[in-house]
Design a protein around this nucleic acid. Structure first.
Lengths: 222, 222
DNA sequence: CAAAAACCTTAATTTTTCTATGGTTTTTAT
DNA sequence: ATAAAAACCATAGAAAAATTAAGGTTTTTG
């Protein structure tokens, strides 16, 4: 019987242990699971790189939030995913995320294009089994909450460019408009203009920023 | 026990009969299914409009291809979906499509934003049951092939506007570049320019149209 | 209430996109 | 193989869109 090698990277040891117990216990028809775990970005990176020269993991499970080793800049599971895609492109990558917010999902779906995305509140032995089977047979696998976010995005035909997305993002985290000039390559009136244009596009003319944030969330941009 | 009213619109009677037999036979825990069917665009439209004033369907299943009554312009399930969204916004809408091509899926996901999308080759009693349950509890429901198409699109950050998409679409159905001026509001050099720009964006500079079509398909635009 | 931030307007500037024109290369059909 | 068609490319000018600077008004916040 084939052995499926799965690596789980999560800074909460309890979580990886949970994955291990559940996945190694499930009776798959055509393979059995052998789990490996890592608790930090660096440990995960090392294991992934080592695997590149030998067995290659079949599936890599990545938490998005990885408590850094104190170093700067903090590395996330997303960064680890990007690295993994490069060094072991054959390995399937699945994100295990606490949040189902659209900005994060959108970003990861674009930078890593993972084979699966699971929202943690929806993870149990059933979804884990389905995930493994789907990902090995015909990816992708998304849990329902991830699908809800994806649907929102797909339902939107308004094409926003990078600057628009940045404005919405910084707005959503409470950055003041006047401070956005430090992060976005536009003048202050330029940013104001785009905000106004976005409000018009979203059909909320002459309303405040809160309305813009709400609408952008509804439409799956943040 | 609650009765779930489902309308299926498909010009192949065998198909709607199939849905009827399967769905009315499944033992759902909290409801039973009562099916209604329609064979043409007009019949479907009528039933949907009538339902608006009375019971409202819980779910409306729409085939995309509806053989017209000979009239022009031919109306598709997509048009019917748009109408249904207007007159009975509470009804869940699920598309049952023969094809899993991205252009169609993308278009429908934007114009109708259906609660489900099933590729016909993946429809059986299991997926039908899952669909009904998911759509009633927490939409959306997509079959695996639809998910594959959706994933492609989500993985793409390149924002194309309407004209770009049209160019790719007409290219994919074999329209000659010089004939596109009849369908797209641009001059011939304008279209040529955009094609060149698209090739650059896709990283296939100085290659022919076939390469552009292939790449656009890979990226989920057509 | 005063300061800060956000918001709006206008005009000038820059950037991008589009068109017209005319030529070259590639594809297609005979 | 070759002529015709289509596709492709380049340039210059025109048009449209986006950006900026400057200065004013309104709203928010401490």
């Amino acid at each position: 019987m084939k052995t499926l090698r799965i690596l789980a990277v999560d800074d909460h040891e309890m979580t990886t242990i949970g994955y291990k117990y559940i996945l190694e216990d499930i009776n798959f028809t055509s393979f059995e699971v052998e789990m490996d775990t890592a608790k930090t970005f660096e440990a995960g990176k090392r294991k992934i790189e080592e695997s590149a020269a030998s067995f290659r993991y079949d599936i890599i499970l990545l938490d998005i939030q990885l408590s850094g080793t104190g170093e700067e800049p903090p590395k996330s599971g997303e960064d680890l995913g990007i690295i993994a895609r490069k060094v072991v492109p054959e390995s399937k990558i699945v994100f295990m995320s606490s949040f189902s917010d659209n900005f994060r999902i959108n970003s990861i779906l674009q930078t890593v294009n993972p084979d699966g995305y699971m929202v943690k509140s929806e993870i149990d032995s059933n979804t884990l089994r389905d995930m493994v089977q789907t990902v090995m047979k015909q990816p992708p696998y998304y849990t329902q909450k991830a699908l809800v976010a994806i649907r929102k995005k797909m339902a939107n035909s308004i094409p926003l460019d990078d600057n628009d997305r940045k404005i919405l993002y910084y707005l959503s985290i409470g950055t003041k408009t006047k401070d956005m000039v430090d992060h976005i390559n536009l003048s202050l009136p330029g940013i104001e203009n785009r905000k106004r244009t976005l409000k018009t596009l979203f059909g909320i003319e002459r309303q405040n920023d809160q309305a813009l944030i709400t609408e952008a969330k509804n439409r799956g941009f943040i």
